[in-house]
Amino acid sequence: MSRFLGQIRQLGYVVDDIEQAMDYWSRVLGVGPFFYNERVPIENYRYRGEAYDVHNSVALANSGFMQVELIQTRNDAPSMYRDFKQASGTGLQHVAYWTESFDEDVVRLTGQGFEIAMSGEVGRNGRFVYFDTEYHPGTVIELSEVAGPKGEMFRLIREASETWDGNDPVRPFPDLGRL
């Protein structure tokens, strides 16, 4: 376990073709099912202090307690994903820690000198921040709030992986408004 913020709970990969990546991860690596959203509804998105309209496709699946996130940018809006792709191509872009104490953890980390590079929210209690920490490819740190519906969605995704038989490898995201 990390002494930083507990367990790393997610590995985030930037990919060129999310459909191809989901197929590879599920068929070859046996990870799934993937829950896919062609356009994640990100609100209050900011990158380096500026607001932008991003269009990202995201797929989530678990392998045990570790969640795999596949991310494909669909527009050229400034983001850490776009920067990573331009600098490194594709691959592991971030590790994520999950928290139910989002505000306190953000205050603690910024107080330790960490700078927020990217932030936004996905539904109620679904805020996220990415810190400017990529000193080695794939080491950006995301802090993801999981106190409400987003945490419930993550639980449902993990539970689906526990009984997954290889069928129906791509499914729609659960509706956060109904969780």
Rank of each mutant, 00 (worst) to 15 (best):
R171V: 00
V28F: 00
D103G: 15
W25M: 00
L5W: 11
D17K: 01
T163M: 00
E121C: 07
D53R: 15
E100G: 05
V31Y: 05
A51Q: 14
G64N: 07
G113F: 08
Q72C: 05
I116Q: 00
S144Q: 12
R178P: 11
V14I: 04
Y130I: 13
N37L: 08
I116W: 01
P33K: 00
M66P: 02
G91R: 10
P172C: 04
E121P: 03
G30D: 09
N56A: 10
W25K: 02
S2M: 06
Y52T: 03
D16Y: 07
L5N: 15
I141L: 11
H55C: 14
I42D: 15
Y36D: 15
Y24V: 05
G123K: 10
M22Q: 12
P137M: 08
L70I: 09
R27P: 01
D23H: 13
W164E: 12
K85G: 11
R127M: 05
I71N: 00
V107S: 09
V54K: 01
G148P: 08
Y45V: 08
A21C: 13
G148Y: 03
D175S: 06
E104H: 07
F35P: 06
V15H: 14
I116V: 00
P172D: 06
G111Q: 06
K85L: 09
D83K: 12
D105K: 04
V54R: 03
F128A: 05
G30L: 10
Q10G: 11
F114G: 08
A117M: 05
D23A: 13
I116N: 01
G148V: 01
G64Y: 07
E38C: 13
T99D: 03
M22I: 13
P172I: 02
G166D: 07
